[in-house]
């Protein structure tokens, strides 16, 4: 396969970026999207140019490190897949592909396609945990009975890998799906209920502080989330938040 790539290049967070055109040849349809970028970078290194910086780690859809907005869509054209799971057979030889970073004021570009998603870490640190003493007196998880539907909902919410595609897809750069998943994951379990009030208030406060936009329920996040995190988590977040505000 031969492809025309239009890639966002940006030296650092301070400088202006632009779309630069590249051509790649000899791409195997069975390569992953990131392997295709590896081929491009190999060519660039050989010709003495700066390779394109992009994020990745596990390359098997579990870590949430890969990103990229491919032809306008975060994580590319397929539903329920991360960029690292996207294969080149999804494209035709001769195609033009736009590749941009996840954009949002709270996700500043570090270099090229790499953005700083540490805002998510700070939200998580502000309340995305349960405080338990693990030093020698750990309680067996199965000792606390949990209704199956609650366990299932919590488990589905916990599937969020924190990639940030929800923010990248949202016209408002809102992080409500991510925060909704993280809040719901705990709020549905007895262990998480103890700190439910502080958790939701603190996480929402941190989310706003980071400069994410407001949710207007366009539903783009759910449609682009590689883990199929449901909008119901935003509903639950709104409920938890209202409940916490009333119970002052």
């Amino acid at each position: 396969m031969e492809l025309k790539l239009k890639i966002w290049r940006q030296k650092n967070s301070g400088e202006k970026g632009a779309i630069i055109d590249y051509n790649v040849k000899k791409i195997d349809p069975d390569m992953s999207f990131l392997e295709m970028l590896d081929v491009l970078n190999q060519d660039l290194i050989k010709s003495g140019e700066e390779p394109v910086a992009f994020d990745h780690d596990c390359r098997e859809g579990i870590c949430g490190m890969c990103s990229l907005v491919i032809n306008g869509s975060p994580h590319g054209p397929d539903k329920g897949t991360t960029t690292c799971q996207l294969h080149m057979r999804r494209f035709k030889s001769g195609d033009t592909i736009y590749i941009e970073p996840f954009r949002g004021t709270a996700f500043p570009v570090i270099k090229d396609l790499v953005v700083d998603r540490s805002a998510f870490d700070r939200i998580q640190q502000s309340g995305g945990y349960v405080s338990v003493n693990t030093s020698g007196n750990t309680v067996d998880a199965n000792a606390t009975p949990i209704p199956k539907p609650d366990a299932d909902e919590a488990f589905k919410a916990a599937a969020c890998i924190g990639c940030g595609a929800c923010v990248a897809s949202c016209k408002n750069s809102s992080a409500m799906l991510f925060v909704g998943a993280k809040v719901s994951q705990y709020s549905r379990l007895p262990q998480g209920k103890v700190e439910a009030r502080e958790r939701v208030l603190n996480m929402v406060k941190q989310m706003d502080k980071e400069g994410f936009g407001n949710c207007t329920n366009t539903g783009a996040c759910e449609a682009h989330c590689p883990k199929g995190i449901s909008l119901d988590n935003i509903l639950n977040l709104n409920r938890e938040y209202i409940k916490a505000k009333i119970r002052k």
Partner: peptide, 17 residues
């Protein structure tokens, strides 16, 4: 507020909404 949350715009953005 929502416009300010994305100061640098996409060149190409096509979302499912």
């Amino acid at each position: 507020q929502n416009r300010r949350a994305r100061k640098s715009k996409y060149v190409f953005h096509k979302t499912r909404s």
